[in-house]
Nucleic acid binder design. Sequence first.
DNA 1: ACCTAACCGGAGAGATTCCCCCGGTTAGTG
DNA 2: CACTAACCGGGGGAATCTCTCCGGTTAGGT
Lengths: 226, 226
Amino acid sequence: MGSRVEKETPLRRDARRNREMLIAAAREIYTDQGVDAPLDDIARRAGVGSATLYRRFAGRAELIEAVFGDSLRDILRAAEEARSATDAWAGLTAYLERIFGLLAADRGTNDLMTTGIQGVPSLDALRKENHKTLDDLLRRAQLQGKVRADATAEDLQFMLAALGRAVPGSTVAAPLAWRRYLALLLDGLRPEGSHPLPAPSLTPEQLGAAMLQLGKVRRPRAGRTD
Amino acid sequence: MGSRVEKETPLRRDARRNREMLIAAAREIYTDQGVDAPLDDIARRAGVGSATLYRRFAGRAELIEAVFGDSLRDILRAAEEARSATDAWAGLTAYLERIFGLLAADRGTNDLMTTGIQGVPSLDALRKENHKTLDDLLRRAQLQGKVRADATAEDLQFMLAALGRAVPGSTVAAPLAWRRYLALLLDGLRPEGSHPLPAPSLTPEQLGAAMLQLGKVRRPRAGRTD
DNA sequence: ACCTAACCGGAGAGATTCCCCCGGTTAGTG
DNA sequence: CACTAACCGGGGGAATCTCTCCGGTTAGGT
């Protein structure tokens, strides 16, 4: 092969249109089913054949990248912003509340941030940046006496992932319940005594509904194992 | 139908033996794959055809009942015991540590206790009893000034389910990591300042492994949707 | 208006998993 | 030892889901 840089032929108009339709359809379906949703569902919702989906995107990871690339970049900016806060604790809580708002509203973003999905480049970058942000804010908050000295960024990340993963379950019955649980988690990180919790507790019925949702891990793929 | 009580014919010896083999096989497979494991796998491990499994047990729920009936009764006893403690906080922590030990060791028990599986009678009884236990201990610990006044049994249950569900992920890399996270959670419930955390924090590598596991929600069934 | 490379979607092969049918086998009795 | 009711396992139909082949269609340049 010559080293000539292949001029990137722009897609034909219909191909381009289908690409957009697929991304839009995927965004909607990911939002309420998560990123494990069947690819055929996405193709059908976009009004194209499944072959077209595979022609435009090599596989699930590439589609995810196309759908979430922008919103991931938004999160990166939020992380940078949070790190620039003088009051590290305030920066940390604001950052986490923003993240959890996303996790609660969008099942796809939730999957992306609370599990270890592989093969999506922007996602690796996000994870690294996220870790750095939490580490930095936590360390500074500790120096400022706002966070217990024996907690680590890994502790925080693990607890956040655990809680974040459970959030969609509670969202059905009580959309804002996550505020209370994030507050409870953060209270465990502080060296002083407890602070009042926001939002009412779940009722027993709401808890039941949430537990049910927890079980519906979701239609994972059958057929070829990827 | 006459109301005559059918004399329960005891199973033929080979049928009885197969039943035992199936229960034993199911126990092993549930322990490391969770209760969503394919029924055909269980039949194969037991060395019988899948038809035999369906002949002995009406479906997944009945098999679960047969496998976990006894261990669930054990947990019930532990709950009663915990409630008899004079120091409610001590009783609560001891109870939860016991439960989490089980959740970490056995994927099947984890599914049973952290999700809302329906159709297993002993399980409904366990959930009711568990809720009563937590409610009682929490209320008493609050009166004794050991737990913040604004926390509810529903809060505790939700957080426990969220964390419990994440525990198997960390078990691969660090079998005892759950102790630290349960302690962190419980610290958030106390009105006073923080207490030292047990067990070392996860290393970044261990955290990565745990996140990966979180994603492997389980080989959900393909084929008929039950 | 015509031509061709690129594109399209249906149809289908292969993989899983649930569940049941059917012909062969065996436990337990007279 | 013979007999029969109960039992057994392989095999297969149906449902899902991933990914590819192929003949027909269309965008965009001449």
